[in-house]
């Protein structure tokens, strides 16, 4: 783990060094891609004047409201469909899969008809995109619970609720975290899209404004902060996952870690 972290940090540092050097040595036009140090300086200035604090706060609030809404709706729904109502799951699955791939940006324009361009439309569209991975991963987690674990537990005469709480739910934890990480990534993507479609604040709006006014440094400052926040969120969830679902990193993790086993 320690070695892996060092390697990952090394790759990122290398990238940042390249970013710093490329405009300096004329590899790219510094007017369109400014040096990394310049971007960092701009970020610090924007926070000092207080301008960025407001945008960061509102963006984070939007992302987490949307993600939280998705969890509050998706988790119980996934548990019910995965555990108690297999018939309804079978019946609604094609529809859910269709909704999950429906283009959210187009959908957002329709949502605006009904909810306007206020906060509720943004929350709705972020939650809409995030809810599907959460529902699907919850269903998968519940349905792939180890049959022999269930048998061992049932042989003790456990009731349905005990079986669910003590065996099925913990069994689903790795898959659940995988879904949550995916959803968190979606939340930040959709957040920016929503803020660009109609808002007067937030980092997405700030980036769009900067671009329209040719403030390249500010554009990069906004993009960097957004990326940083998304990575921070992902790392936080991953830490929780390592703490609460340590026995299995979930399918996504396994794919990423496969190289380590082969090496």
């Amino acid at each position: 783990m320690g070695k892996n972290t060092v390697r990952k940090a090394g790759v990122i540092l290398l990238f940042l060094a390249l970013w710093e050097l490329a405009p300096l040595i004329g590899l790219v036009d510094p007017v369109f891609i400014p040096r990394f140090s310049g971007v960092v300086q701009t970020i610090l200035e924007l926070y000092k004047t207080g301008e960025f604090v407001q945008h960061t706060r509102i963006s984070l609030l939007r992302a987490f409201t949307g993600l939280a809404t998705a969890v509050v709706i998706g988790l119980p729904l996934g548990l019910l469909l995965g555990g108690w109502f297999p018939r309804i799951r079978q019946a609604t699955e094609p529809l859910m899969e269709l909704f999950a791939v429906a283009n959210p940006v187009i959908l957002a324009h329709i949502i605006i008809f009904f909810l306007g361009i206020g906060e509720s439309a943004k929350t709705f569209i972020i939650a809409w995109l995030c809810v599907w991975p959460i529902i699907f991963s919850t269903i998968t987690g519940i349905r792939t619970a180890d049959e022999s674990l269930l048998k061992a537990a049932r042989s003790l005469g456990l009731g349905r609720w005990q079986l669910f709480r003590l065996v099925v739910l913990p069994s689903a934890a790795p898959s659940l975290f995988t879904g949550l990480r995916l959803a968190a990534g979606y939340a930040f993507i959709m957040l920016i899209a929503a803020e660009m479609m109609g808002a007067g604040s937030g980092l997405g709006w700030f980036v769009l404004q900067s671009q329209e006014n040719y403030h390249v440094l500010r554009l990069f400052a906004g993009a960097t902060v957004i990326t940083f926040l998304a990575v921070l969120t992902d790392v936080s969830i991953k830490l929780l996952q390592n703490r609460f679902a340590f026995w299995n990193g979930g399918p996504a993790e396994n794919v990423l870690e496969q190289g380590r086993w082969m090496a």
């Binding site: 180890d146 022999s148 048998k151 061992a152 042989s155 065996v167 913990p170 679902a245 026995w247 299995n248």
Partner: peptide
Amino acid sequence: DRGIVLQGYALFPW
């Protein structure tokens, strides 16, 4: 009143 031991261990990984 009965204990069961299965082939696949069936231990709770958490």
